[in-house]
Nucleic acid binder design. Sequence first.
DNA 1: TCAATTCCGACGAAACGTGTCAGAAATCCC
DNA 2: GGGATTTCTGACACGTTTCGTCGGAATTGA
Lengths: 163, 163
Amino acid sequence: MNDHQDPAQRDLHGSGAVTFSMRSEYGVRFMVALTRMDHGEPVSLTDIADQEDLPRAYLEQIIGGLRDAGLIDSQRGAHGGYRLARPASEVRMGEVLRALEGPIVPMACLAAAGSPCNRADNCTVSQLWSRVRDSVNEALDSFTLADLAKPGSPVALSSAAKH
Amino acid sequence: MNDHQDPAQRDLHGSGAVTFSMRSEYGVRFMVALTRMDHGEPVSLTDIADQEDLPRAYLEQIIGGLRDAGLIDSQRGAHGGYRLARPASEVRMGEVLRALEGPIVPMACLAAAGSPCNRADNCTVSQLWSRVRDSVNEALDSFTLADLAKPGSPVALSSAAKH
DNA sequence: TCAATTCCGACGAAACGTGTCAGAAATCCC
DNA sequence: GGGATTTCTGACACGTTTCGTCGGAATTGA
C-alpha cells in the first residue's frame, strides 16, 4: 500500500520550480472528493482516503489547515467526519490553496507585506515576482470548487465561459 | 561575507508554495546586472557578484544553465567574462527562468507531456494546474530583460522613494 | 611564463517534503 | 458506564533538494 504517486514522475530533468507540493495535490483532491461525497452526513477521512487512494495519516495532517481556514467543518467521534462549510460554488480554489500552503508568493522578498526587499534601490526585479504572484492568484480564483467537482470533463468549458 | 539574504525572511508563517528558488533570484539579478554593465567588453563574474552582493561561487554554478540555453556568451581567460547573447529587449524573462529552473510546471502530473496524470478519469483537477502553469508563463513572458534593467522604471520609483 | 578568468565535479550542512506512528480527546450507541 | 469510532495533535524518521564552498583543470591575454 505504499504505491502513491509514482516517484519517477518527478525527476524528469532538473524538473522545475513554481511547483505546488503533494500537500496541495492531496488537499485539493480531498476537497473535490468531499464535495462529491457530501450528501448531508459527515464523510469520514478513511472513506475519502480510500476513494482517492491517498495516504490517510498524511491527509489527516494536511486537513488541519482547511479546517482552521473554515473551509470544512469537522465532527469527532463515531459517525463523525467532514462537511463542506460552504456551498462548493462559493469556494474559490485560491482560498483552498492558500489554506493548504501559506500565502502564494513566488519569492521571499514579497512576503513582508511592507517593503519589497531591502534592496529597494534598483530592485525592479520585484515587479516580475509580484506580477507572477497576481497571475497565479487570479488563475486559482478563477475556479470554484464546484467547477472541479463536476464529474463530466467539460470543466474547461464552463470556466472558459466565465468573466 | 556570509550575510546574503537574511534567512529570517523565509520562515514567515508556513511560508508558502509556488516559490522560485534563490537560484532564480540570483540568476535574474545576474542577468539584469549584466545588462546594465555590458558596454561591449565582457563583464567578469566577480564584478557582477560584488555589485549585486551575490555569493560568487554559487552564482558561477547557476550561470551554467544560462550559457547552455544560449542566453549569454562567455569568454574564458584573462579579461574574459560574460556578454548578453542577444539584445535585452528581445529576451523574455520566461526564457531566463526556464533556463534557470526546468520547465515551469506547477504540478508533477503535468510534466509528462502526454497524458495529464494517470488518473485521467475524473482528474478534472489537472485543469487547475494547467491554467496556473499558463498564467505563470504568460506573466514571465510579458517582461523582457530590458524592462527590468531600466534603472528608473516607474513601479520601482513608486516603491523606492529613498536615497 | 604568469595572472586572470571561466568551467567542472565533488562535497557538506541545513532545510524541506512526505509520510508514519502513538496516543489523547470527543462523540455515538448499546 | 463502556466500547467502538473518529478526529486531533505532536513527535519522529527518511530521502531529497537547496544553498553554498572548495579545489583544481582548462583557456586566454600580456
